[in-house]
Design a protein around this nucleic acid. Structure first.
Lengths: 254, 254
DNA sequence: CCTTGTGAAATCTTTCACAGCT
DNA sequence: AGCTGTGAAAGATTTCACAAGG
């Protein structure tokens, strides 16, 4: 969520559905794995299984990007990797700042998934003077006072907020004022931003609550037939065509 | 995503839409905040603003739960907190295990949002023998060898996977075999699970890629009118009725 | 003969707008 | 008079199923 493409019609935009955009990274990851194994081509069926979606959905998704497949054969892995990367804007370098270097912020800084996809941790920022200068993941932490200068010097347009909930809106305001237009929020708060700024949230607590909801359902159904919990499950099944997938966001609870 | 309610008709289920379930935690958080400020009642308009959705959507969502409001007045905060908690299954205790106590696992273990919502970290599990016995967030880490026993002794049905991608499926299989039926996956992999097991994923890299997509669009549009990046934005706006929100999942990239 | 690309149908979600209750 | 609850309309997403291309 958190996208609100309400503004400007976006001229040359081919209008890729949001649900499709959300799945492109999934396809890209599956394709990258195939690429590393030097697999030259892949069918919609195979790729869909690897990405955990069904093949009709995948083909429809790709149809929004163009006709990149060959009938009777499938898709060229390398070519598709390139096309999707380009579509997602990953062929360029995206400097990112992480604000709030607590447990989570440090985990994010150490997280290897950044570099691999065009994202570069340009700076780590924290409000605690004690932290200033200390290196985390090899990058020295800088103080919040310099936030605006850091954003500006590094041409940052994407910010990650990993502060406590109470500080998030304030940090967000400063990031936005300094020129950041995309924010990934890990704090358990609803952020208010001006039009034209995108916010996405990741919230562990919300995800757990959604799981609890379904878990409760299962327990209820089950009670009607067996004793209670614990039901050793049978054969594995690839999630390829389970339910609606790519959606529901999340936020870190208070 | 990751829900696949394909199986059994689920007898007494009133069939709450998945999109609604995904927003209930959001409402709950806003309501809890109101409750702490001792606000007795709230209108759909006010609550919607606090939760970052529009009021028609909120009323429709609540209508799936029942008629808990009073026309002309609004909703009783305490009552609604209780009803939503019950619906989400948060009135009971959910023991949770976290597998993979690296940076991220430790951050999750330290995360306060658990306890507040009926979730209890029952155990921390890691494959590294060096970690065994060391306390993280006050809880001693246990070795993977004992995974099955831990799950069983604690009656765990929800597991959190924070291992590297390579270990995730294996851990998942063991969790499922031991009786876990809901999994929150932070590893950047598609997990295969049997029917009846729910998986939700949280992936930082995917979220960033989605932001990059939109960021790229903005840069393109903007180029047509000004110089390049950096556009100090104007008045703030509450995201209440921006775009489609609660959806797109995420996964930790490799 | 195999697999893509895609109209059309089915399903799910959001939004509108107003009748109905307090 | 105000605000909820909800049919019905509008929009988005998914799935079907098959024509078309290699």
């Amino acid at each position: 969520m958190a996208t609100g493409r309400t503004h400007r019609p976006a001229t040359r935009s081919r209008g890729i559905p949001e649900a499709t955009v959300a799945r492109l990274p999934l396809y890209l990851r599956a394709l990258t794995a195939l690429s590393e194994r030097s697999v030259p081509t892949v069918s919609s069926e195979e790729l869909a299984a690897a990405a955990g979606v069904n093949s009709a959905k995948l083909r429809k998704d790709f149809s929004y990007l163009g006709s990149y497949g060959t009938r009777g054969v499938g898709y060229d892995v390398e070519y598709l990797v390139y096309q999707i990367s380009r579509e997602l804007g990953l062929t360029q370098d995206w400097p990112v700042v992480i604000v709030g270097i607590g447990n989570l912020g440090a985990a994010l800084a150490n997280y290897g998934g950044f570099a691999s996809r065009g994202f570069r941790v340009a700076a780590l920022i924290d409000a605690d003077p004690e932290m200033a200068g200390k290196p985390v993941a090899g990058i020295p932490v800088q103080h919040t006072d310099d936030l605006e200068k850091i954003i500006d010097d590094n041409g940052v347009s994407i910010g990650v907020i990993a502060t406590p909930a109470g500080a998030a809106q304030q940090v967000c305001d400063r990031l936005v004022a300094a020129g950041v237009t995309s924010i990934l929020n890990f704090a358990p708060t609803v952020l208010s931003v001006p039009d034209g700024v995108d916010v996405r949230k990741v919230d562990l607590s919300i995800e757990l609550q959604i799981l609890a909801f379904h878990e409760q359902r299962k327990a209820g159904e089950e009670a009607a037939e067996t004793d209670g919990r614990r039901r050793p499950v049978a054969a594995r099944k690839t999630p390829a065509d389970k339910g609606p997938d790519g959606d529901v966001p999340a936020v870190m609870p208070a």
